[in-house]
Amino acid sequence: MEHPNRPEPILTLSGVHTHIGQYHILQGVDLAVPRGGLSVLLGRNGAGKTTTLRTIMGLWRASGGTIRFDGQDITRLDTPDIARAGIAYVPESMAVFSNLTVRENLLLAARDGLLEPSRVDWICGFFPALKKFWNYPAGNLSGGQKQMVAIARAIVEPKKLLLVDEPTKGLAPAIVQSLMAAFRELKDTDTTILLVEQNFNFVRTLGDLVNVMDDGRVVHAGPMRTLAEDDALQTRLLGLSLDSHQ
């Protein structure tokens, strides 16, 4: 039961199981993402973090349990309906439409095929390279620039919840700083962020809450500050200090 003085979480997973073929990946995930701010999902490789995001998005169907978003049961909804409900997903693969320009990539995600100039200017304030390569095919961009396009496409329309999988993986430090600025400002809007990330220096200053996964379950949930200041807890949950996650 929710505390009477606390709002209902914008996203709740209750006992969620996911099977992929013969593999039982998620084994009863319980996860609550508060409305507003940035929640982080940490864990060893193979713990089930990406599967959790993909299951929320309906890309993989939950085989058990319930997923509720903004007061609605979305467990059995198809991915397009989940997106229309207000969730955007940025996969680790930096998926872009390679033959389309940066502008055309964003247009695909824009309501009625129209880009709001003030919104584009706001996004390009974080990622100036997007304006520079506005009319270039996205397939010609570097990995970091493609990641910018993927994130820009996800936020070109205001979303209630943004799911982001390993956004800093393989990126240069300067681009990571741009991402940090973008997420920090998004936190101050009406967008809630659930972020899977291994770069602890990135999430240490951004994350409000942290959930740690192991073997397909959430084994720890609490304030990011508590985990960041407790080396023994880091070692117990992750097998090493989070400062090693660079």
Score class of each variant (00 low, 15 high):
Ser241Arg: 14
Lys146Phe: 04
His24Lys: 07
Ala95His: 09
Ala62Val: 03
Leu13Gln: 07
Leu53His: 05
Leu206Gln: 03
Pro91Lys: 05
Asn135Tyr: 12
Arg35Cys: 10
Asp188Leu: 15
Ser63Gly: 12
Leu163Lys: 00
Val156Asn: 04
Cys124Met: 12
Gly239Leu: 13
Met1Phe: 13
Gly139Trp: 06
Pro9Ile: 09
Ala85His: 09
Ser63Trp: 08
Val120Thr: 11
Ile87Pro: 02
Leu179Met: 12
Thr79Ile: 02
Gln147Trp: 06
Ala152Trp: 00
Lys49Cys: 01
Leu42Cys: 05
Val16Met: 05
Phe126Met: 07
Gly48Ile: 04
Ile74Trp: 00
Trp134Pro: 00
Gly216Asp: 01
Thr168Phe: 07
Arg68Ala: 11
Val156Trp: 03
Gly86Met: 12
Phe133His: 01
Gly170Asp: 08
Thr75Ser: 12
Ile193Met: 09
Gln246His: 15
Leu41Trp: 01
Arg35Trp: 08
Thr101Tyr: 00
Pro9Gly: 08
Asp208Ala: 02
Asp78Tyr: 15
Lys132Glu: 13
Pro80Cys: 05
Ala152Thr: 00
Asp112Tyr: 11
Glu8Tyr: 14
Thr75Phe: 04
Lys132Ala: 11
Asn199Ala: 05
Pro34Val: 01
Ser14Lys: 14
Tyr89Trp: 11
Arg217Lys: 10
Leu233Ala: 07
Pro91Arg: 11
Ala83Val: 13
Pro91Val: 11
Glu166Thr: 08
Ala32Ile: 12
Leu108Met: 12
Pro173Met: 09
Asp215Gly: 15
Pro7Glu: 10
Ala47Phe: 04
Asp214Asn: 15
Ile87Asp: 01
Leu238Ile: 08
Gly37Ser: 08
Thr55Arg: 03
Gly65Ile: 10
His3Gly: 10
Ile20Met: 14
Ile25Tyr: 03
Tyr23Lys: 14
Pro128Phe: 09
Phe126Pro: 05
Leu161Gly: 02
Gly86His: 12
Lys49Glu: 02
Thr12Asp: 12
Asn45Glu: 02
Gly46Pro: 08
Ala110Gly: 05
Leu41Cys: 02
Leu53Asp: 06
Val219Arg: 06
Gln234Asp: 00
Pro158Ser: 01
Leu107Val: 06
Leu31Tyr: 04
Glu8Pro: 12
Glu229Val: 06
Pro117Cys: 03
Thr75His: 06
Ile10Gly: 00
Thr235Ala: 15
Leu42Glu: 02
Thr52Ile: 09
Glu185Ser: 12
Arg153Asp: 04
Asp73His: 13
Arg217Asp: 04
Thr52Met: 10
Tyr136Ala: 10
Ala172Ser: 06
Arg236Lys: 14
Glu166Tyr: 08
Asp112Gly: 12
Ser178His: 13
Ile56Gly: 01
Lys131His: 15
Cys124Trp: 05
Gly46Tyr: 05
His245Lys: 14
Asn140Arg: 12
Asp208His: 03
Arg103Asp: 10
Leu115Trp: 10
Leu31Phe: 09
Ala109Arg: 05
Phe202Gly: 01
Gln198Met: 08
